[in-house]
Design a protein around this nucleic acid. Structure first.
Length: 458
RNA sequence: GGCCCUAUCGUCUAAUGGUUAGGACACGGCCUUCUCAAGGCUGGAAUCCGGGUUCGAGUCCCGGUAGGGUCACCA
């Protein structure tokens, strides 16, 4: 039997980490079995569905490298559902419930447990005639699950022939599209018996089910827009690499048989299996994602690295391609996300000094272990002299260092280098002073040392 | 509340009846060091509770507790 799986999101919100896991597991399972993976947009709720969300889902899947073989949109398939609704009504498995009956039903319910304003009946509706039986199915992750459907009552499958509702469309599409394995979130476990009932009414053998655990908010409560459900596209704009996101999210709820943590799609394809999927919900931890991102950043070639950097560079950097080149090694071993590139190059960032020297106090020029004004003055004067010996065109880290290093070593590295660092960058957190000097160039470096010296004199 | 699912360090997880309960992130310490990071080494940290079954239980069974899901003319 050929395996066919699907990812069936409703476009009522952005694609988030939880969506990704169900999409990934479905996709992988199909690929491993040389089957098909289908994307199906479930937009039967006209009020809440938005094109913007559908686009976000499609873009996110693409970014994460999940390719689907077929694409469907339920709003394009109303005719198909109509056929099945008729069939169910004709076979006596569904019936039209009049507006009056709906009114009565609603009032009765309201009396029992002062219901909310969730649904006020307006008109007649099509309900499924519940045979009130016991439904048992074998979940590929959780094993045997048993439900008594009596309490479910006659549930709604369509507002009218032209407006089918969730349970009906899911069953029809899963059948029509030849879905063999439904891999979806745990929140659908209690929907499963209803759907099996419809399959049975249609004399169709239900597919296999696998319900994967949900992702939790940091306080272990339900993940919602308000509480921790962040669109995957946000991670992209914060400067995360898709491989890092894929790697981290895969490890949330699944684990290979060894202790390996860094792995890519190929490894997942090779090793994934549903029976190693965790049964309990997991909390998304951005700190660990950051760590993964760092691992993948470290592997990037300089060319790829600078390509990823582009979107995050402030305007003043753009014209200076030589600066970008010099910045790469510095950024590469500092950043966790590419978003930090713009932070670091901002005026108050660690590398902002390249663009403008910020105000700093005279005292900060003094090294904490030897806060002596005269010594700072003496060393800066000497470094200035050594700097001027190097020609502008040869003002590189290596040349600068070879000129200054032995002086710094004999006079105390901290005593010499700390005032120099402050003079050049105006910041206590900054790169190596030799790096900073090259970044600034000979003239600017000398100028900044002069500024520092004048501060020390006053 | 009814029904259903779940339960190992703070977090993600490993251990398919026998290990000093392992790894990773985070955290602490040390090393490196002119700052901040990074990096290397290292440390603390867990089987929800109570009963069974068994020579032996994180693992199997029962009960409790806790968390989650679901009970719509949402999906």
């Amino acid at each position: 039997m050929k395996v066919v799986t699907r990812f069936a999101p409703s476009p009522t919100g952005y694609f988030h980490a939880g969506s990704y896991r169900t999409a990934l597991f479905s996709c992988i399972f199909a690929r491993q079995n040389l089957g098909k993976f289908i994307l199906r947009i479930e937009d039967t709720d006209k009020e809440r569905s938005k094109k913007e969300y559908e686009e976000n889902i499609i873009e996110s899947l693409k970014w994460l490298g999940l390719d689907y073989d077929e694409f469907y949109r339920q709003s394009d398939r109303i005719e198909v559902y109509k056929k099945y609704i008729k069939r169910l009504i004709e076979s006596g498995n569904a019936y039209v419930s009049s507006a009056e009956d709906e009114e009565k039903r609603y009032l009765g319910k309201e009396g029992k447990e002062s219901q909310s304003e969730k649904s006020t009946p307006k008109s007649s509706v099509i309900r499924f005639k519940n045979p009130n039986k016991k439904v048992i199915f074998e979940d590929m992750i959780r094993g045997r699950i048993e439900f008594d459907t009596t309490e479910l009552g006659d549930f709604v499958i369509a507002k009218n022939e032209d407006e089918p509702v969730f349970h009906l469309v899911v069953v029809v599409d899963d059948h029509e599209m030849g879905i063999t394995h439904i891999i979806r979130g745990e929140d659908h476990i209690s929907n499963t018996p209803r759907q099996i009932l419809i399959f049975e009414a249609l004399s169709i053998k239900p597919p296999q089910y696998a319900h994967i655990p949900l992702l939790l908010a940091p306080d272990r409560s339900k993940l919602s827009k308000r509480n921790g459900a962040i669109p995957i596209s946000d991670y992209r704009s914060k400067g995360y690499l898709s491989q890092a996101v894929v790697n981290y999210l895969t490890l949330l709820g699944w684990h290979p048989s060894d202790n390996k943590e860094i792995f890519g799609m190929e490894d997942i394809l090779k090793e994934f299996s549903l029976n190693r999927v965790q049964k309990s919900g997991a909390i998304f931890d951005e700190e660990k994602l950051k760590w993964f991102n760092r691992q993948y950043i470290a592997k990037l070639s300089d060319a790829d690295f600078s390509e990823h950097t582009k979107a995050f560079l402030p305007e003043w950097v753009a014209p200076k391609s030589d600066i970008i080149k010099k910045l790469i090694p510095i950024l590469k071993d500092k950043i966790m996300t590419f978003g930090e590139v713009s932070d670091m190059l901002a005026a108050n960032g660690e590398l902002g000094f390249i663009h403008c020297l910020s105000e700093y106090k005279k005292e900060s020029l003094l090294w904490k272990k030897n806060p002596d004004v005269d010594s700072a003055k003496k060393h800066l004067t000497e470094v200035s002299r050594l700097f001027s010996k190097v020609a502008s065109v040869q003002f590189t880290i290596v040349n600068i260092k070879s000129e200054v290093w032995s002086y710094a070593e004999t006079n105390g590295k901290g005593d010499v280098l700390w005032p120099l660092r402050m003079a050049l960058t105006g910041q206590d957190k900054s790169p190596d002073p030799f790096v900073s000097a090259e970044l600034l160039g000979r003239e600017e470096s000398l100028k900044r040392i002069e500024i520092a010296l004048s501060k020390l004199i006053n």
